[in-house]
Design a protein around this nucleic acid. Structure first.
Length: 180
DNA sequence: CAAGAGATCATCT
DNA sequence: GATGATCTCTTGA
């Protein structure tokens, strides 16, 4: 059920698409918060200008160079956390941003979770999760496969959001989401 | 309904 | 000192 390390070492674009319909589980104070992933974005490799890692290996981006299955959490615009799962192999910087989820359990029904900042708020994501592993028994945040099949014709692609500065990379159709 | 501004800070130049 | 992988509220047509 819980996705293992091998899953995260596939091609980032495949993972980004495969994550649609998967279940994200956050364990906090003994309680579980559960949601279905319905929107992702891929950030791939050292040349992707939209990726933080394109400007080189720094303290901040170090986690993107780790092997797949680590969480990359960072603060954006001073107010919101973005949650990413690192993919592929060690020394190759890539990650998938979890942009939106569908609440299943532990999230109040009227809570909106249709954007990265709101997802992080609903799941109580904070920087202490940065660089932690998504697999293994100690994990407080992981992804499960419940065998939910997302019909191909409901999977949509589009350019990524908020990356106008990424020049030739800004129009890459590396955002995946489930059509309502 | 669309457009703009503010909140607020880690990271990089 | 500038700038975002954002969200919400306010303004104005």
């Amino acid at each position: 059920m819980k996705l293992n390390k091998k899953f995260y070492q596939q091609k980032t674009l495949k993972i980004a698409e495969d994550l649609l319909g998967k279940i994200i589980v956050r364990k906090i104070n003994g309680k579980k918060i559960i949601g279905e992933i319905i929107e992702t974005e891929a950030y791939v490799g050292p040349n992707d200008l939209a990726s933080h890692a394109s400007r080189g290996r720094t303290k901040r981006t170090e986690v993107m160079f780790a092997e797949g299955g680590c969480w990359y959490v960072y603060l954006i615009y001073g107010m919101y956390y973005c949650l990413n799962i690192v993919t592929e192999n060690k020394d190759y910087p890539a990650a998938v941003l979890i942009r939106a989820i569908q609440p299943i359990k532990g999230i109040s029904a009227n809570a909106k979770t249709d954007g990265p900042g709101k997802v992080s708020r609903a799941l109580r994501i904070d920087k202490s999760l940065n660089f932690t592993a998504a697999f293994g028994k100690e994990s407080k945040l992981w992804i499960e496969d419940w065998g939910i099949k997302t019909p191909k014709n409901k999977i949509k692609k589009s350019p990524r959001i908020g990356v106008d500065y990424a020049k030739q990379y800004k129009n890459k159709p590396w955002r995946f989401y489930i059509k309502k």
